[in-house]
Design a protein around this nucleic acid. Structure first.
Lengths: 233, 233
DNA sequence: ACAAAAGTGTTTGGTATACACCCATGT
DNA sequence: ACATGGGTGTATACCAAACACTTTTGT
């Protein structure tokens, strides 16, 4: 019952290459009416000052999901944020500093003035996905994949509400979906479909900011959405 | 010094934790009429000999995709195999031997007697996805995610042909799809939809093995499938 | 003759789309 | 009064699903 092939488990694991593993966060938000991504200037060479996704190395004490949440939280101060893994990226030269394996996540947040101030302290800023600068490394690929994943989700799962205030008008949801999908949507069809979802509830609040007449404000009730795969817009 | 950084930029590489990064392959095949996964006895402790997905550590000289291809090739002898990344898995205790980050890939192969012999030499065997044993670590989760990804793809992209011989009958495609989707499919609708795809071409070969009458054999012509998103069954 | 799988069209219901006007209100 | 965005219903086209019998041929 000897195993000369397998030494101790520690020995086997010790023999393999080891890597820094990072998470990179594609943080989406509605900013100035545009679907935007949070970018910050790099603080280190190479490419000092170049706009970049937010990332961080995974610690021994945390899972990948936890690392992504931590990075997001450190930057924005937000917890309990909707995040989804996009995938792992491991091209040999993806980071010129070292062979780093990175796992990309996207997050959907409601940005507000306080958050903008906070992230501004790190030099971060919101950039519309329609006018992204040239980004370093594989960050453009990550964003593209994240946006593709978001597009796939937005009409089938109630994720859009993560980007909207607690109370929102139907027009706001529609405008958001159009930004995400990159194409216009028929107003009447959108409204009908959206309200077919039980989890979208009218309130007695009226939004008077964007129209003279005022628009009914709705809320997303996550308790009315226990059932998976029953959302559609 | 703060943990917060911009992406994975310089200056932090020496200080950060490092991990073995592995790939785990969910190798799908049609075997004995069942959609099956290839399980191999673990080659090292812990859980030496337990049925397991085939995996391997990522080398410094290879990308994640290349590592997955290498592991698949070592086991099966096959190159140029259809593979897709499922995602990264990083639970703290996912591998009791060490803190390993693993990236799962699924592969679609045409198994045959030669391959079965070869993988049998490693003690590997095909197990129906409907009757998987209790697997170690997060392998059940990986398989579940891989299968979900395959289900999403199979009706929208021509991936099923990777699991079939060069020449196949429509009934074979249908049976395969039913195995993947886990539900029966209407024969006439399936046949009509399948043949609406230009890339599925009739040949003059007749399969006489499964019926007295004989069934027309078809082939998938990848050259007729330049256009993305134009496949549907 | 008969068993066993291949092959074949039509009908129907539902869903997605296209489309234009009136409403309520602040200025 | 009028400008602005909110709110409303219908007709049509298309697509997906349901459905049963005939054909071929080896035994």
């Amino acid at each position: 019952m000897t195993d000369f092939i397998n030494s101790t488990s520690g020995g086997f694991y010790a023999a393999c290459d080891r890597y820094p593993v990072s998470v990179d966060c594609i943080i989406f938000s509605l900013h100035g009416g545009e679907l935007s991504v949070l970018l910050a200037p790099r603080r280190f060479e190479p490419k000092l000052g170049a706009p970049s996704l937010m990332g961080g190395f995974v610690k021994l004490t945390e899972t990948l999901d936890e690392a992504a949440s931590r990075v997001l939280s450190e930057l924005t101060g937000l917890d309990d944020v909707y995040m989804e893994q996009v995938g792992a990226f491991g091209a040999l030269d993806r980071d010129p500093g070292d062979r780093v394996i990175s796992v990309a996540y996207y997050a959907l947040i409601k940005s507000d003035a306080a958050i903008d101030r906070r992230v501004g302290g790190y030099g971060a800023e919101w950039v519309s996905v329609m006018s992204l600068p040239d980004l370093e490394f594989d960050h453009p690929l990550m964003i593209e994949r994240a946006l593709a994943a978001l597009r796939r989700k937005v009409t089938r799962e109630p994720v859009a509400f993560n980007l909207l205030p607690e109370l929102f008008t139907i027009a706001q949801v529609q405008a958001l979906c159009e930004k995400i999908l990159g194409e216009p949507v028929d107003k009447r069809n959108f409204r009908r479909r959206l309200l077919e979802n039980e989890c979208v509830e009218a309130t007695d609040k009226i939004d008077k900011l964007t129209s003279r007449r005022g628009a009914t404000m709705y809320r997303f009730n996550k308790d009315s959405y226990n059932d998976t795969l029953k959302f559609k817009i």
